[in-house]
Amino acid sequence: MIDVHYFPTPNGKKVTILLEELGVPYTVVTVHIGRGDQFQDGFLKISPNNRMPAIVDHAPKGGGAPISVFESGAIMMYLAEKEGRFWPQDDLRAKYEVAQWVIWQMANQGPKFGERGHFSRVAESEGDQSYAQRRFNDEVHRLYGVMNNRLYDRRYLAGDDYSIADMISYPWTSSYAVQGIDLDEFKHFKRWFEELSERPAVQRGMAVTVDPGEDPASITPEEQERRRKLLYNQRARPAPVG
């Protein structure tokens, strides 16, 4: 059984899409990032960067103690390698065709799309955000172009076969309209996006949610302030003493 420490963000949904495609049983363990669950000591033991998702595999290949993995790209590589699907291992060229696009997503698409979202929400009281908004809007547009140009002569990002490269990239594109993207401008990407959107496992993985366990109206001003201090402008945590 796989425990998935999860909140329904694009990074979490990458992993649930893959698990649904694999048909592997899993249990969702809620990590409510809005209230700061990711900073709890128990979670930090499996995800030292205090970010979700993370997994714990209680039945690793070859047996032995449970294995925990953090970072969505590493999780997807781990699961695909364990199950022998969606990431070829015997063909070196095919293996790294997939691997480079998984890393591209982790290093480029995810961070840049996330920054675009962040700066689009910053309050006016924080000052003029126009440069940051323009920079990340342009970068998001550029990255859609990267995918579009990649897909003009191949069915999937890594070639003819559907892989974790596609699954890891899809969730961040599901909000293309909010990101200001016109799909008709990127016809090759649009074809890929529409095909993936019809896959039942993708639909199931995208639909995985959690019980937030609270009424937003019940959150006191003091708790709101605590969360702001915890979640924003984070600096280094001190190392354990001992």
Rank of each mutant, 00 (worst) to 15 (best):
E20Y: 13
P10T: 02
V69N: 01
S169Q: 02
L44W: 04
S163W: 08
R204P: 05
W87C: 09
I33V: 15
D211T: 04
I55T: 00
E115D: 09
R93L: 15
D3K: 13
V98M: 05
G180P: 08
F70M: 08
G42F: 01
Y26C: 03
S68F: 07
H141W: 12
E195I: 06
Y232K: 09
Y6E: 10
F39N: 06
Y232C: 07
E222G: 08
E21C: 10
E185I: 11
R191F: 08
Y162Q: 01
R199W: 04
F43L: 07
T9P: 07
V4L: 15
I55F: 11
V24K: 12
R93P: 04
P171T: 05
N49Q: 12
Q203I: 14
G84A: 10
T173A: 13
P66N: 09
W192Q: 07
H141I: 12
Q129L: 06
V56F: 07
V4Y: 02
I219F: 05
P48I: 10
F43Y: 15
A177F: 02
A107N: 13
F43Q: 07
R226G: 07
D153E: 14
R237D: 11
R121G: 14
R35H: 01
G42W: 12
G73L: 03
M76C: 05
W172N: 08
A207L: 11
Q179G: 05
H5C: 00
I17K: 04
P66S: 10
Y170A: 00
G205D: 04
D41S: 13
P216N: 02
G213F: 02
Y176W: 15
V98W: 02
E126G: 02
N108R: 01
F43R: 05
E222R: 05
D166S: 05
F189V: 01
F189I: 01
R142I: 10
E194D: 15
Q234P: 10
M76S: 01
A99M: 14
D41Y: 02
V208H: 11
M77A: 10
P221Q: 07
D153K: 13
M147R: 01
P25V: 10
N137A: 15
A177V: 08
R135L: 11
D128T: 06
I168K: 00
F186H: 12
A94L: 08
